[in-house]
Amino acid sequence: MATTNSPLQRILVWLTLILAALISLFPMYWLFVMALTPIGTIPPSEPYLVPSPFSLSNIERLLVGAKDYGRWAINSIVIAIVVTAWHTIFDTMSGYAFAKRKFPGRNVLFGLILSTLMIPPQVTLVPTYVVTRQLGLLESDPLITIGGFQLLSINSLAVILPGLAAVFGVFLMRQYIQTLPSELEDAARIDGCSEFQVFSNVILPLCVPAIAALSIFSFVRNWNDFLWPLIVLRKSINYTLTVGVAGLQGEFSTDYGIIFAGAALAALPMIIFFLMFQRYFIEGVRMGALKG
């Protein structure tokens, strides 16, 4: 539909687009309205469409009632950052090797990785659970503490370690690096760069757009991850936000104010993150990194 001519057609097009935007955003909007309306434990007679009166009391009650909420947020942040950092570094390295370097076994190894892409992650749940439990990763002792503040527990490793194995970034980086001209590398080698310098000084700077997409993808994915953390995280203090927030429904069954506040606060960081890096998100989808 290159051009739409008649005014009636135009109006219909606009109505459709705006209606779709409303349908898309309204559930999120309503979640925040309910989170910011003091509904407490008495169910309202009808849903609020604007917060009336506007109040932060649900959030205050959430932070008192669900005392680990801040802890969940920290766990989510730490896990997502560690896994993302790993992928941005090592997926770029292996993506480069698979794209540009010739070595024995390259096609076999890459084919092997490729062939597992279709296997649903649910297939590995049981053996991975057995291994993490045998390794003692279901224990909740602190692993890294800074000045008495627990940064990472042993249990977090049960989420982090399998997270390091996602192979999508390898494909993304390989795909992207294949499009870079090889002359640059050759020139750098002639200038006396070591093989690592070729990677770090020539390839890496050219990969910034793909790395940006990959890190955003990885961060969102790990932040939103649910089924695996639900299986391995046992104690409230080790929960990630998704696991903790889903648990609010059971813990505060009819205290809707707390539940709404918990869900809205958990959604907020990703919404802000999206609004800040919108361009990279859309670019990432185009590169094939994101789904949703």
Binding site: L31, T242, V245, A266, M270, I271, F281, L290, G292
Partner: peptide, 17 residues
């Protein structure tokens, strides 16, 4: 962007909403 925004929100929050 309007269409994409809910997609960055966790399915847990969407399901609860």
């Amino acid at each position: 962007a309007a269409y994409y925004l809910p997609a960055v929100t966790s399915a847990v929050v969407i399901g609860m909403t």
